[in-house]
Design a protein around this nucleic acid. Structure first.
Lengths: 224, 224
DNA sequence: GCCAAAATGTACCACGCGGTTCATTCCTTT
DNA sequence: AAAGGAATGAACCGCGTGGTACATTTTGGC
C-alpha cells in the first residue's frame, strides 16, 4: 500500500507541509484582518492545529510569517487570473471583459486586497523585498498589453495608449471598490455596494475604460 | 493691555489649547505613519513639547487620541475643499475642474489619505462613531450634485446620472493614486508618479469621468 | 534495530507599552 | 490673599506579547 502521494501519505502525527500550510492560512486571515502590528501571534497559534512553537520553527519570527502570508495571498490571486482567455475576442470586447473580470475578481478576494492595503500603509517595504512577488507581477499586465496592441493594429484604439496607465485605471476602480467600501458606505450609505449598485458601477467603469481606450468615433454598438 | 485674544494671550507656561493642538498634530502624523496599533504613545509624547501625562489628561486613552486625530484630518482636508468655486462655469467645465481639483487635493494631503486607509482596515469603526465626521461629510457631494443637475438641465449630461456613483469614480481614481502608490510603483515602476505621468493620468481621469457624465454626442471641444 | 536529524509539546521569560499615582505648580475667582 | 480647581511633571506599574530553552517524540537512513 503506497497508492497516495508523498503529501497525502502522512496522515499521522508528523506532517510538515500541512502544518506550514495550516499556519499560513490562519496567518493570512489574521494579518488581513488586523494588520501587521495588530495581528497577534498567539491568536494565530490558537487558531492553528499546531502551536506557537511551530510558527517560530518554520517562519523564524513574526515578520517572516507575515512575508510568507503576503506571498501566499499574491499566489492565490494571480492563480485565479490565469483562467481568463481573451485572445478570441475583438479588442474592445476583450478589454471590456478584462475590466469586468478584474472588478469581480478583486471583489471576490477581499483578504488579498486588505493585504495590499496593509502593504501600502507600510510603504510596500516587504513587498519590495520579496522576489517571489516581483516575479509574479512580471506578467501582470501582459494580457492588457496584448489587447492594446491588437486594438491599435485594428485601428479602434487610440495611438499612444499606455498599457500601464490603463492598468492603473482598471486597478483604481477595482481596488477602491473593495478597499474603501467601509468608509464610503459609512458616509454615503450602502446602496452602491448592494447588487444593483455594484452592477451599475461595474458597467460605468467598463464604459469609462473603453472611452479612454477607443478612438473618438469608435464605440461598441452591442451594449448588453 | 488686553488687545490679544484669549488663545494668543497665554504665551507663558500654561496653555491648554496649544498643548492639545501640539499633541494632535504629532499624533496625526504618527497614526498616519504607523496605523493605530503601530503607533506608540510614548513616541507621540516624546515628539511633543509636553508629556505623556497630558495626552491621557486631555484625550483619555489611545483610542480617544486616535479619534480626535482622525477628526482633525477630516477637518483640515474639508476646509481646503471649500475654496473651490464652480458656479460660474459651464457644467462640463465645472465637472472637469472638480475632478482635476480632487485629484490634486488628495495628492496634496497624503496624511489624510493614510488615515482613511487605516480606517478602512478597521472597517471604518471609529469613523462611523464620530458625529463630527458624519456632519462634515453631509455636504461632501453637494457641489457634484449641483453640477449634475445643471448639466442635465442644459441637456449635456445623461439622464439617470447618479451623483453618488460619479463621486465614487472621482474618489476611486484620486484616492488610489495616493493610497496605492507604494505597491504600484514597486511593481510597475515609478514613471506614472512623476510629474509627466501624473499629468497624463489626471487628464485621462478627467476624460473618463466626462465620458461617463456626458451624452454620447456631447464632448468638450476645447481640450486645454 | 539504532542513531541522528527533523519535528513537536510545555513551560517560561524579558520587556515594550498603554495606562496610572501622587505630588506640584499655575491661574482664576472672590 | 487665600482658596481651589485646572494644568503639569516624574516616576512607576501590570501585563500582553513576541520570542526562547529544554525536553521529547517521530522518522528516515543504514
Amino acid at each position: 500500500m503506497r497508492s497516495t502521494t508523498d503529501a497525502e501519505r502522512r496522515g499521522w502525527t508528523q506532517n510538515p507541509e500541512a502544518v506550514q500550510q495550516d499556519i499560513l492560512t490562519v496567518a493570512l486571515a489574521e494579518f488581513a484582518e488586523n494588520g501587521f502590528s495588530g495581528a497577534r501571534v498567539d491568536t494565530i497559534a490558537s487558531r492553528t492545529q499546531t502551536s506557537k512553537r511551530m510558527i517560530y520553527y518554520y517562519f523564524g519570527d513574526k515578520l517572516g510569517l507575515y512575508t510568507r502570508a503576503l506571498e501566499a495571498a499574491y499566489l492565490r490571486v494571480r492563480q485565479g487570473e490565469t483562467q481568463l482567455e481573451l485572445d478570441h475576442l475583438a479588442p474592445q470586447e476583450a478589454l471590456a471583459r478584462l475590466v469586468a473580470f478584474t472588478f469581480d475578481h478583486h471583489r471576490a478576494n477581499p483578504d488579498f486586497i486588505r493585504m495590499v492595503m496593509i502593504e501600502n500603509i507600510h510603504k510596500a517595504r516587504h513587498l519590495a523585498e520579496s522576489q517571489v512577488i516581483r516575479d509574479l507581477n512580471e506578467a501582470a499586465i501582459d494580457k492588457l498589453t496584448e489587447i492594446c496592441r491588437r486594438g491599435q493594429d485594428a485601428g479602434v484604439f487610440r495611438e499612444g495608449l499606455d498599457p500601464a496607465a490603463l492598468h492603473w485605471q482598471i486597478s483604481a476602480a477595482s481596488f477602491f471598490n473593495v478597499s474603501n467600501r467601509p468608509t464610503f458606505s459609512a458616509i454615503f450609505g450602502n446602496a452602491l455596494f448592494e447588487d444593483d449598485g455594484q452592477e451599475a458601477i461595474r458597467r460605468q467603469t467598463v464604459d469609462a475604460i473603453l472611452a479612454i481606450a477607443c478612438k473618438p468615433g469608435v464605440r461598441d454598438p452591442e451594449n448588453e
